[in-house]
């Protein structure tokens, strides 16, 4: 049984099993789920939709993974994404001819910069002022939506500059453009966290902040950095959201994204108690969520009700991570090995 233990001991094993089960379910019960067609040189189909629609959550999950690894949480990402959408929409705006008010590239950079600053703000509150992460990011969770609404004068702002649509709707080599953004960001993050000592430091800070400080690690700056990075990721996700519908709606853009991102991270095997993190797992987690959503769609259940399913998943995951729960289950079955 050693091979079995080695296999299940792999961090990615359970997230992948969950995803595979979900896909297998669809294989049998959802007609044409795996059908992929080629239209105008693009790939079309449910699977492609999952990849395309899942990319904002995947982006957010990358940033959220590092935040959660430091034992933090960032519930402002949805609002920050809305700010990004609002800023980029107001900057590019444009008339019906599709001529942007400001150059597209600069507008994008500025929007992402604004979001990075928002993340820095969160990081300052957590690392310098010492607020609990939940409270610190709660401020932007709601004030951020206010800022997004004020940016767009409380209106839905439309964009007509065609090139901007590529971000959310474009295809390269048959695959959605946004997927490439995810891959690039993921590879960059993997590189920076695993080829430098950053990942080790993040984990050290998450496992034991005091010990990390005593070991000479500048824990404050590490924390500041991960929140800023989370804001950066939220900014990019906001661009995709905005580009998807070519409009910015401060009230509805990115609503509920924070839970999806947190859920993706937790599903991917990173504990809410901080410490060891698994970026690839978070991506798989995001794919699970998106597949779940598509599955719910396929069964003609109103998408809003998907929130109930997600909430239930959070309960289950939280319970599975609770040592108290595991030991009481173990007691119930009279077995001790579960309690480990």
């Amino acid at each position: 049984m050693a091979w079995w233990k080695r296999l299940t001991g792999k961090k990615l094993f359970w997230p992948l099993v969950a995803l595979a089960l979900l896909l297998a379910f669809n294989l049998f019960f959802t007609p044409h789920f795996f059908q992929i067609q080629i239209k105008q040189g693009h790939l079309y189909g449910n699977v492609i939709d999952i990849l395309k629609n899942g990319s904002p959550i995947m982006l957010l999950a990358i940033g959220m993974t590092l935040v959660i690894a430091t034992k933090g949480i960032d519930i402002s990402v949805g609002s920050v994404a809305a700010i990004s959408a609002g800023v980029v929409a107001m900057l590019i705006g444009g008339d019906l001819q599709g001529i942007p008010k400001h150059p597209i590239f600069e507008s994008i950079v500025l929007a992402v910069l604004v979001c990075t600053v928002a993340g820095l703000w969160n990081g300052m509150l957590v690392s310098r002022i010492g607020m609990q992460p939940i409270i610190a990011t709660l401020i932007l969770f709601v004030a951020g939506r206010g800022i997004a609404m004020v940016t767009t004068n409380a209106m839905v702002v439309w964009l007509y500059a065609k090139p901007f649509a590529i971000i959310g709707q474009g295809y390269v080599f048959g695959l959605p453009f946004s997927l490439y953004m995810v891959v690039v960001l993921l590879l960059m993050t993997l590189f920076v966290t695993r080829r430098t000592a950053l990942g080790l430091f993040i984990e050290a800070v998450g496992i034991n902040p005091t010990a990390a400080r005593f070991a000479g690690i500048n824990a404050k700056n590490i924390i500041l950095l991960v929140y800023a990075f989370s804001g950066f990721c939220a900014g990019i996700a906001g661009l995709i959201v905005c580009s998807n519908v070519m409009s910015a709606d401060g009230n509805n853009a990115g609503v509920g994204y924070e839970l999806d991102a947190i859920l993706a991270v937790v599903l991917g095997g990173t504990s809410l108690n901080g410490g060891k993190f698994n970026l690839l797992g978070s991506i798989v987690g995001a794919l699970i969520i998106e597949t779940l959503t598509v599955t719910i769609y396929a069964f003609n259940v109103p998408p809003e009700i998907a929130q109930v399913v997600k909430a239930v998943v959070v309960y289950i995951i939280s319970l599975l991570q609770s040592s108290k729960f595991r030991s009481s289950v173990a007691n119930m079955f009279g077995r001790r090995e579960l309690a480990a």
Binding site: I75, G256, L259, I262, Q307, A311, V314, S318
Partner: peptide, 8 residues
């Protein structure tokens, strides 16, 4: 986290 799930 529990009440956040409760929110949704």
């Amino acid at each position: 986290i529990i009440t956040l799930a409760g929110l949704y």
